Simulated assay, not measured.
Amino acid sequence: MDFRKTFDRIPDQFDKWRPRYCDELFKDIIEYANIGPGKSVLEIGPGTGQATEPFLKTGCDYLAIELGEHFVDFTKKKFGTYENFHIVNDDFETHDFGERKFDLVFSAATIQWIPEEIGFPKVFNLLKNGGALAMFMTYTDEKTSNGSLYDEIQKVYDEHFHVETKYTCSLNYDNVVNYGFVDLNYRDWKKTRIYNADEYVEYLSGTQVEHITLQEPYKSNFNNGVREAVIHAGNRIILDDTIALYLTRKP
């Protein structure tokens, strides 16, 4: 199964529940890459645009490449008032950018879908000399703050979570230095989210690729089991987020 367009099925739900990034992250990227008017920026797979607007507001020449047709329509409506917003509906892996070069290429939890031997060299070639690559994502710890609730939810997974295809995409971001990039540095920020039972089920159903593809009767049984577990634990679950950022540049 090709999971790459899974979220495109549910753009409104995805946009509502996808965790947001922090202002500090955008500030660091914009300063690192010196982005502003006259600079060119490429976003790989913006989805519904959780990371898009801070870059548009700099006045840069912004281009997004997005595989999902519904996501393209969604972001056109969301950012259509920005004259510097441009988006193309295509596959980054095969799209021909011609002679165009960028001062910044960035990925908000998307580049891990691309094999590193394809993604890293292509980004390197798309960047101007001295141009920057920013890769960021949110890692969520659902265990530390929830005690026995975490164990109860794992029991629901064991009993009801049976998917046809496992999600196996992963990327070692440190490997970027093997493709000519330099000045790799990492930084992160901590945030906490608190959901009730219904919110947590909606979050899982709208942002986790395997949960979206879960078939009946497993889907209903799983959702009901998770909902009951959270309700019995006081109708409250705490998610501890780490917003992680990798910055590097082309010499």
Rank of each mutant, 00 (worst) to 15 (best):
G180T: 04
D188I: 03
I111V: 13
P217L: 13
F102Y: 10
D240M: 09
G206Y: 03
L56D: 12
E24L: 07
T248G: 10
E210G: 11
G206S: 14
S205R: 13
L149Y: 04
K5W: 08
V177P: 10
F92K: 02
I118W: 02
Q215E: 15
V163S: 09
K250P: 05
E159C: 01
N125Y: 03
N172R: 14
Q112V: 08
D15L: 03
S145M: 14
K16S: 07
A108C: 06
A233I: 03
Q215N: 09
I237W: 05
E69W: 04
N89G: 00
E43K: 04
V230F: 00
G47E: 11
N224S: 10
R236N: 13
N172M: 08
A64N: 01
I238N: 04
D158E: 12
Q50F: 10
C169K: 09
I194Q: 14
I65R: 02
P37H: 15
I118C: 03
N221P: 05
A108G: 10
Q208K: 05
A197N: 07
L171P: 08
F85A: 01
R236Y: 06
K76G: 06
K101L: 12
I44N: 06
L126T: 05
I30C: 13
E99V: 12
V105I: 15
I194H: 13
Q112F: 13
I35C: 12
I114C: 01
E116H: 10
T165R: 09
K16T: 12
V88P: 02
V72M: 00
K128P: 08
I44W: 02
G131D: 02
A108D: 06
K190R: 15
R236Q: 13
P121I: 02
K78I: 11
K76A: 04
G119Q: 07
Y62K: 03
Y62H: 05
I153K: 00
P54D: 13
G49V: 06
D61G: 01
G36Y: 11
K166M: 06
M135W: 01
D73S: 06
F14I: 04
K76H: 03
I118F: 02
E152P: 00
H232A: 11
P54Y: 13
E99Q: 14
I231D: 01
K76T: 08
G147E: 12
P251Q: 13
G45N: 04
Y200T: 00
A132F: 07
Y195P: 05
F222S: 05
G38A: 05
I238V: 15
F120I: 08
K16V: 04
V72Y: 03
D90K: 14
G234A: 06
K143Y: 02
Y195K: 08
E116D: 13
Y139E: 11
E142F: 01
G68E: 09
D188L: 08
T58L: 12
F74I: 00
R193K: 09
Y139R: 07
E83M: 03
P19Y: 11
L127S: 06
E43C: 10
N172E: 12
V177H: 10
Y200L: 01
I111F: 08
L67Y: 10
L184Y: 07
N196C: 07
N125L: 02
A109H: 10
N89F: 01
V176I: 12
D91S: 06
S170P: 01
N146E: 03
T165H: 15
T48V: 07
V88L: 11
V123T: 11
G234V: 05
D158F: 00
F26P: 13
E210K: 12
K128S: 05
K155H: 00
P46E: 05
R100T: 14
L63I: 07
